[in-house]
């Protein structure tokens, strides 16, 4: 009974649909709200030391769930982990969804932060306030056009099925919501113009800027001022030229199947990738994995002294 009450329910659970007592979900929600209120109230009202202990306790409890879910070997057939009748694997899905919900709410905080900063820039006419204005124009244009286009699909469950049939009333004109199947690849509506025409190309442009920056960074940084720098530059040149036809042409005279084929630039670059780069990547990977494990343990057990849990002396 108690387990049933604390076991979370979601709208898609079969047990709920086939006539589980309606009050179970409400009791569950109330209990959850009560628990949150108690914990938050305690954190705010308690003294520094008690607050710290409470936060440490919450961090430990939250982490313990995933620790148990990971370390307990699962059932061989279902591959799900259970502990005293509670299916931890299924519950982790629900907790994952809860995390997404929390993340969704924090998105509002992010938007608030953007509006606050850019609003202030415009209000005080700070240097570059025009950019802040362009933020508001872009933000509103994308939001309004996307909502206007999809509005009908939120309320009419048969929208997707019927949108192209004659006689079906569309709420928005075609320049807001173009459902013409011949325009499937590029709808002629305002959102597509903004998304396909502006956003995608601006995104790709930002990525392409990288190419220019790589050249200027390489030109500035790859100068042979020491032995190490020489090794770095020679390897970079081999890799670069080994990857493209023009570079490969340098050693094209060496027969592919001959004794000296290993001296072809593409062969050398593959050797560097496979034999030198591969093991190095693995070694760094081991170190990083263990570093992440150490950090995770420290955060879980509130041992990250000097940064999160205690002011350094």
């Amino acid at each position: 009974m108690i387990l049933g009450l604390i076991n979370p329910l979601t709208g898609t659970d079969d047990i709920w649909i086939v006539g589980d007592p309606w009050y179970r979900l409400i009791i569950f929600c109330l209990l959850a709200a009560l628990l949150c209120t108690v914990v938050l109230g305690a954190i705010h009202m308690a003294g520094n030391q008690a607050t710290r202990l409470l936060v440490m306790g919450c961090a430990f409890a939250a982490g313990l769930f995933y620790v148990l879910e990971f370390f307990i070997p699962p059932d061989a057939k279902s591959q799900e982990v259970s502990l005293w009748g509670v299916n931890l694997t299924q519950m982790s899905g629900i907790i994952g969804n809860a995390n997404q919900v929390v993340a969704g709410f924090t998105f509002l905080l992010g938007v608030y932060n953007l509006v606050h900063i850019h609003g202030n820039n415009i209000r005080r006419l700070r240097k570059g306030w025009g950019y802040s204005l362009s933020f508001f124009i872009a933000f509103l244009a994308m939001t309004v056009s996307a909502f206007a286009r999809d509005w009908q699909s939120f309320f009419d469950p048969k929208y997707d099925e019927l949108k192209n049939t004659a006689g079906y009333q569309l709420w928005m004109p075609s320049w807001v919501n173009d459902v013409d199947p011949t325009h499937a690849l590029m709808p002629h509506d305002i959102f597509s113009v903004l998304f396909e025409g502006f956003y995608r190309n601006m995104d790709a442009t930002m990525f392409s800027i990288l190419a220019f920056y790589i050249v200027s960074a390489a030109y500035r940084a790859f100068r042979i001022r020491s032995k190490e720098a020489a090794v770095l530059m020679i390897t970079a040149v081999i890799m670069m030229m080994g990857q493209v036809p023009l570079g490969q042409a340098i050693t094209a005279a060496i027969p592919k199947d001959g004794f000296w084929h290993g001296l072809r630039i593409e062969e050398i670059s593959q050797f560097v990738l496979n034999t030198i780069n591969g093991p190095v990547q693995r070694a760094i990977g081991f170190g990083l994995g263990l570093g992440a494990l150490g950090m995770a343990l420290r955060i879980w057990l509130s041992l990250e002294r000097g940064t999160y849990f205690e002011e350094t002396s």
Binding site: G287, G291, L293, G294, L297, R298, E304, R305, G306, T312
Partner: peptide
């Protein structure tokens, strides 16, 4: 931070 706990973690790693 030179915190012993964190250095200990490094040695463990």
């Amino acid at each position: 931070t030179r915190e012993p706990v964190l250095s200990g973690s490094l040695v463990g790693q």
